[in-house]
Design a binder for these strands. Structure first.
Lengths: 221, 221
DNA sequence: AATAATTTTTAGATTAACCTAAAAATTTGT
DNA sequence: ACAAATTTTTAGGTTAATCTAAAAATTATT
């Protein structure tokens, strides 16, 4: 049973929504995530259920089966490995790689993924700090915290971003923030929830609540 | 005007047939090359003509337009660069890369191709010795000769293969032949057109006419 | 040159993946 | 608890890319 590119994309979307929202994934969430009409989603859900990739109950939402989960995991693994390749080897910026990886993730061939993984040195995180499952589908977890939750004096290393959109990433580049950079929270303004941070022990900048919420660090003591 | 993957594949097939056969490319040659029904080809030719990618006259065959030619050239460039990547960087054997490159060549994004080219050091030939057009679509030519045409005492460096199929490539591996290897023609047997060759100044093997015809060398004096 | 053989096109279907509009089911609010 | 609002599904269509079978055009043969 072959799985089409469209089917793969639905599985990935379902996986990601389930990861975030927990419970059964509803038709409309999928439609929103994929920018398609709800009717198209219903069509596809029937097909995926037929192929045993999801458990589907009309009006009740869906859940991935073992097989569907495996497929989605491999897809995310491929996507993130290709992102590492594009940034580390081809020199793309972290805000330029999503669309390319979106295409590359659909290239079929198991040996390809695993050789790519090896070529890249088995990275466990992609250029945005998201974890890359290994060949057995195992994830690496980290104790990440949003900068918006730090207290004055808290220090951490930037390990990820929640918003992956270009404007945010370009802004971070501009103020000298990126993965691996040290951030020290100097103080918080309660009025607008903005925070003052010292970056890499050098410059100091003010981050709006929105920015601070989209930035993850692993706290260092 | 976007060009679909299927359209790209037809353009590439037309380009390759035209390259080999010279004149106008006929429906049946395309059907044979693509393993599709002639009727499907006719359908597609109409679409490609509509998009100004080919010049098409019913029953008379087709020719690529400037634009069609450019598209096919870029596609071949991408295919061959990815093959170099797969062999040089990921360690695939030269007989394993065709199907993967067939998928990778359809990944869209100009900067990707050019960065890949640069990452690979601007190779001018792929792992089978086929030329890779540069970013301006220019080809590198070489004075290649089939081993079947060498005379006793003639010496050359293997620079390409005509048959790209796995059994042939695996056979070459087995007897120690590959790109860059030196071949000296020891003598010819007129009866069956087989040739005796010395490989890399070491081992000596007999090559059937078929093998000798599928192997290219650049003669060294 | 007429007929036979071959090649190509047309006609008519199919499938995956989408759509809009309308109907049905579920959830929410008073 | 029932009407209103929302969500989801069904019904009916479209497009790209394929197919088979039949018709038409071209090429080859006697």
């Amino acid at each position: 049973m072959t799985i089409t590119t469209a089917e793969e994309n639905y599985l990935k979307a379902i996986f990601k929504i389930a990861e975030k929202e927990g419970k059964a994934v509803l038709t409309n969430s999928i439609a929103a995530a994929m920018n398609t009409a709800a009717a198209s989603v219903t069509d596809m859900l029937k097909r995926l259920a037929e192929k045993q990739l999801i458990k589907y109950e009309k009006y009740r939402g869906v859940e991935l089966t073992e097989e569907g989960n495996r497929t989605a995991t491999v897809l995310i693994r491929k996507h993130r490995l290709w992102e590492v390749f594009l940034v580390e080897k081809l020199g793309f910026a972290w805000d330029e790689v999503h669309d390319l990886a979106e295409q590359l993730e659909h290239v079929q061939g198991e040996p390809l993924v695993d050789r790519l993984d090896s070529f890249l040195g088995f990275p466990r995180f992609d250029p945005h700090g998201d974890p890359i499952p290994d060949a057995q589908g195992r994830w690496t977890f980290r104790q990440q915290v949003r900068v918006s939750l730090l207290q004055p004096g808290d220090k951490g290393i930037v390990t990820g971003v929640d918003d992956h959109a270009t404007p945010f990433l370009k802004y971070l580049d501009q103020i000298g923030l990126g993965l691996g950079v040290e951030v020290l929270l100097v103080n918080r303004t309660e009025y607008d929830q903005s925070v003052q941070v010292r970056i890499g022990g050098k410059s100091e900048v003010m981050l709006s609540e929105k920015v601070a919420q989209n930035l993850f660090v692993v706290v260092s003591y």
